[in-house]
Amino acid sequence: MPDNQGLGEQALNKAAEIGISSQLDEVENLDVDVKTDPLKLLGGEVDSVKIEGEGLVMQKDLRVEELEMQMGNVAINPLSVAFGKIELTKPTKGSTRVVLTQDDINRAFNSEYVGSQLQSQKIHVNGQLVTIVPQQVDFRLPGNSKVAISASILLRETNETHQVAFSAVPKVGANGQTVSLENVEYGDTNEISPDLTKALIDATSEILNLSNFDLEGMSLRVKQLQIETGKLIMQAEAYVEQIPSA
């Protein structure tokens, strides 16, 4: 840690790191960098707050490869600093970048949470109402702005296993909170049930829903979704009412 970093900055960094970590299931690396000077801090002014994280596991077993958040001109209660807290006196906005890998999304797809979500609904397959049990879901990011999903699905009532494969283009909803899949194209397998495909599309939207990445006092609104081979990058605006602290 640089020698010229003020004690106030160090205390705030540590408090925010502990506070954010406490909201996550796992953290590989988390670094908070508060920039200000002692006089400004006494007046409740902070020049900038930068949060950088790697390998953060959020709710629903969703792992984030990288998270970067940058906020400028943050107004805080100077008295809160004495207690090692960053208490905002007014909300602030920041820019955020979230990177998810193909492996991260696969992990979420094959998690208990998504499995139970899919099994909790009955759908129509060949004119019969059945319960679907995902055996294996393979989510890929092949590039060219698409996601590709192939899944092996057991129909509990008939004990049949079906393969489902399709690709689609994720689009961010107008509110910046939801992601929908458009331009669905089917693979080699014939579509056995529109309901089954819809269940998988809904599960994808649920995993990529931006509220999954919100921390207490912070909400994100996606501006741009970019797909590279093996990686999905979200550029978002953060609305911050409070920075979690210890």
Results as ranks from 00 to 15, higher is better:
G55Q: 11
E160R: 13
Y239D: 10
Y239R: 11
D31C: 02
D202R: 07
L181I: 15
L155N: 05
Q70E: 10
P134Y: 10
Q235P: 01
P170T: 15
K171G: 05
N77C: 04
Y113S: 14
G53A: 09
D61P: 00
P2T: 10
P38S: 15
Q177P: 01
E216Y: 01
R107G: 10
A108D: 04
D138N: 14
M234T: 15
V179H: 06
E17C: 06
P2M: 01
D188I: 08
Y239P: 00
Q163K: 07
V179N: 13
G72C: 01
N126Y: 05
L88C: 08
V240Q: 09
G143I: 09
G8K: 06
V169Q: 12
K122M: 12
L232M: 15
N29L: 06
T89E: 07
E9W: 03
S80L: 02
I243V: 15
A82P: 00
S211M: 04
G143T: 11
Q242R: 14
L232R: 13
T161N: 10
I227L: 13
A199V: 03
I18K: 10
N212G: 06
L141I: 14
V98F: 09
A15V: 06
I76L: 13
L24D: 04
E182D: 15
I51M: 09
H124P: 01
L220D: 09
L155Y: 02
A246P: 01
E52K: 11
E66Y: 07
E87S: 10
D25M: 07
S150C: 00
L56D: 13
I132M: 12
S245Y: 10
N4H: 05
Q119C: 03
